[in-house]
Computed example of a mutant assay.
Amino acid sequence: MPAEHHHHHESHRSHHAGWLRAAVLGANDGLISTGSLVLGMATAQATPATILLSGLAGLVAGALSMAAGEYVSVSSQSDAEEADIRIERAALEQHPEAELQELTQIYIHRGLEPALARQVAEQLTAHDDLAAHLRDEVGIHEVQRARPVQAAMASAGAFTLGALPPVLLAWLWSGPGLATVVVASSLVLLAVLGYVAERVAGGGGIKGALRVLLWGSLAQAATALIGWLFGVNVG
């Protein structure tokens, strides 16, 4: 009876590293910076309209800043990758035998016998020489290629989602105690975000929550202190 063949697929965490980093960074930044801004304005006894306007301005400016920064940063990485691709393509056209030998040496250093390494190098070269060299010589993998637009959109979207809770509170909370509500809700959301981010990355979650809580608490304490020290009605 023929053996059954089962398709086995492994989902590796590192395949999601690019968008995960941008999303976590954006959400953290949105929640911490906008929440701290609203908190600082509230402790400075600003009017509700001024607090809301400050939160909205922080949300829009922060989202655009995150998108621009991420796009420029990842574009630089993409430019470097494109330069390496041009170099490898030219080398393969001008020195094919030397490039084949270089690929063979890479596989020998990884533990293959010389004859087998040569055979593997020849077969991979025949299949897709450029892809083989980019992957095994340069270290450029398709799943980890730089994608500036995707990174920019993820950062801006995540920042906006992170900044929305304090802005909505500034809009909807009409009574006293806005500062307390912003602090409590922001810390809870930061803990959840840190926990989920580490779990998605393959960790336990607790350390991620504590890391985000620490920096979020420091940011909120600093802005609350500034607002309390000035204590000026800026409305």
Rank of each mutant, 00 (worst) to 15 (best):
Asp79Lys: 03
Ala49His: 10
His16Lys: 07
Ile87Asn: 00
Ala17Tyr: 04
Gly58Tyr: 08
Ile51Ala: 07
Met41Glu: 06
Ala27Thr: 14
Ala17Gly: 03
Gly26Trp: 07
Thr43Asp: 07
His16Glu: 11
Leu31Ile: 09
Ala68Thr: 13
Ser76Met: 14
Val38Asp: 08
Ser75Tyr: 05
His16Leu: 15
Ser78Leu: 13
Leu52Ser: 02
Ser36Arg: 03
Val38Met: 06
Gly40Val: 12
Ser78Tyr: 09
Ala17Thr: 09
Leu59Pro: 03
Ser73His: 02
Thr43Leu: 13
Ala22Val: 03
Ala67Asp: 05
Asp79Ile: 03
Ala68Gln: 03
Val72Ala: 06
Arg86Lys: 08
Ala61Trp: 02
Leu39Lys: 04
Ala23Met: 15
Thr47Trp: 01
Gly58Val: 07
Gly35Pro: 10
Gln45Lys: 11
Gly40Asn: 10
Ala22Ser: 15
Thr34Ser: 11
Thr34Val: 15
Pro48Val: 01
Leu31Trp: 11
Ile87Gly: 00
Val74Glu: 11
Ser33Tyr: 03
Arg21Ala: 12
Val72Ile: 15
Ser65Met: 05
Val24Gly: 14
Ala49Tyr: 01
Gly62Ala: 12
Arg21Met: 10
Gly58Trp: 00
Leu64His: 02
Gly18Ser: 14
Gly58Met: 10
Gly62Pro: 10
Met41Phe: 15
Gly55Trp: 04
Glu81Pro: 03
Ala22Glu: 15
Gly40Asp: 08
Glu82Arg: 12
Val24Gln: 09
Thr43Ser: 14
Leu37Tyr: 02
Ala49Ile: 06
Leu39Gly: 11
Asp84Arg: 13
Ser75Pro: 02
Val60Gln: 04
Ala67Val: 00
Ala68Val: 13
Ser76Leu: 13
Met41Ala: 15
Leu53His: 06
Tyr71His: 05
Asn28Ile: 01
His16Pro: 00
Val24Cys: 14
Leu31Glu: 12
Leu59Asp: 08
Leu20His: 12
Ala22Thr: 00
Glu81Gly: 10
Trp19Met: 10
Glu88Lys: 01
Asp29Gly: 06
Gly18Ile: 03
Thr34Gln: 06
Thr43His: 09
Tyr71Val: 00
Ala68Ile: 11
Ala42Arg: 08
Tyr71Asn: 00
Leu52Glu: 01
Gln77Pro: 01
Ser73Thr: 05
Ala44Thr: 08
Asp79Gln: 06
Leu31Gln: 13
Leu52Thr: 11
Gly40Thr: 09
Gly40Ile: 12
Ala63Val: 10
Ala80Pro: 07
Asn28Val: 01
Leu59Met: 14
Ser78Gly: 07
His16Asp: 14
Thr43Pro: 09
Thr34Ile: 13
Glu81Tyr: 05
His16Gly: 08
Ser33Cys: 14
Leu64Thr: 07
His16Asn: 05
Pro48His: 02
Ala46Pro: 08
Gln45Trp: 03
Ser75Thr: 14
Leu52Ile: 05
His16Thr: 09
Ile32Val: 15
Ala23Leu: 14
Ala83Arg: 12
Ile32Pro: 07
Gln45Cys: 04
Glu82Cys: 01
Gly35Thr: 08
Ile51Val: 15
Ile32Asn: 12
Ser75Leu: 09
His16Ile: 03
Ala57Gln: 04
Ser78His: 15
Ala63Asp: 06
Trp19Phe: 09
